[in-house]
Write a protein that binds this DNA or RNA. Structure first.
Lengths: 224, 224
DNA sequence: ATTGATAAAAGTGTCGACAATAATATTTGT
DNA sequence: ACAAATATTATTGTCGACACTTTTATCAAT
């Protein structure tokens, strides 16, 4: 359907992979819904082979699941799954933050501070409105993970879990009351990184993510 | 080549995936080596399509890498990569251990203790000889991760990282001097889990893995 | 002999078709 | 009318072939 999708220098499977991933993350393709290979292949006007190529990569991101002889299905979202995701992030990003404090170059630290300045001047973001705040938040976490220099961490977080995180945010929304507080926590984390205090940086990051998780847990209990 | 490989109730791609994964993990297919699709397809007497299906799943395990128009290549192993893997394990398994202390059933804890008893009675394992010790060690870690009940953790560790861990062990060997000490650390970890002390369990597991990492780092500095 | 351009070979990306399995619709028996 | 068994349809698994890209081999020129 989207016509000018294959005009780059990448493969067709690559383009479809990227597009499909976005449509799943943003909820255009509903969670838990079945994916029909013939249907999708027709939609993108490609063969089932290249579609399957794209789908297998999306499966590696954890966005779809596959059963033999049954096919692909978008993952199901649940509050339990969201909490599990927070726990994994708490441990992984905590470690990433520790390593970032040890390994980030001066230049990278400057860039991180600049990102925070942008966030500070952005009014709606400060109020935690809209999904801009969410993306801004992920940018921050993203840069720290990249700064860790650990390829496994980068792969697990930036190429897998973060897509699921964004998917949850599109579907469940973001706890806005924490926006202002979250910004302050970001500031403290950067301070620890600037001081090259890896131990503290890890603790602060873990608390930062745990606070978000507890916020969700609180909302959970209210709504049941 | 291996004749009776397809006699189960799974798909061909599934069988090839499992077999190929083992051959890569155990080093029969050398790290960093190029994988020729026609060659492998001929070896397994399957079409390239189903081979690619198997390969894409192996890529999801992080055992091979793929470049567009170039093909698949077994991942390169390096001491830096091994240290990065330790850091990821330290954070993930630390969290898994904390959750295991909170969530494991009585039955699961009993089973964990039984595993340790088996290890205690196994003489060569106590001396840390051969790869039996290695597999026994992984069994222990495996059970704890499963006991965490966190599906993301289980997926990341048991279905991805542990295969790479085993691949490194086959290639680099295992630091034997730590065998006895490692066993004692396992005991202490189980004690914390039995006491349902999640905080302590996490700390002990992190130290346990960090100790292995430091051991490797020490050997690294000697050999250079 | 070495380098650069050109041609041949091999390899990956993509396609459409058939086979095997699962899901659906129909028939049959009570 | 309902249930179980059967037949039909649709979907996934697998295959072989062709197109395009990369690599290797050949050749030309200095």
């Amino acid at each position: 359907m989207p016509n000018q999708l294959f005009n780059s220098n990448t493969t067709r499977a690559d383009s479809v992979f990227t597009d499909l991933r976005t449509r799943i993350v943003e909820g255009e393709i509903t969670p838990s819904s079945k994916l029909s290979e013939p249907e999708l292949a027709k939609y993108y006007q490609i063969s089932r082979s290249t579609l399957r190529d794209a789908l297998s990569r999306i499966e590696a991101c954890g966005l779809v699941e596959r059963k033999a002889n049954i096919g692909y299905r978008v993952v199901a979202l649940s509050t339990e799954g969201l909490l599990e995701l927070f726990q994994v992030r708490e441990s992984l990003e905590g470690m990433a933050c520790r390593l970032a404090a040890q390994n980030m170059s001066e230049n990278q630290i400057v860039q991180l501070n600049e990102l925070l300045n942008i966030h500070q001047q952005d009014e709606p973001l400060q109020r935690g409105q809209g999904y801009i705040q969410q993306e801004g938040d992920l940018d921050f976490h993203y840069q720290i993970v990249m700064g860790s220099g650990n390829k496994q961490l980068i792969r697990l977080l930036c190429e897998e879990l973060y897509y699921l995180v964004r998917m949850y945010r599109y579907q469940f929304g973001m706890p806005s009351p924490r926006a202002k507080r979250a910004f302050n926590e970001h500031q403290n984390i950067i301070q620890a990184i600037t001081d090259k205090d890896g131990e503290l940086a890890e603790i602060l990051m873990r608390r930062h993510i745990a606070a978000s998780r507890l916020n969700v847990e609180k909302r959970m209990n209210v709504n049941e």
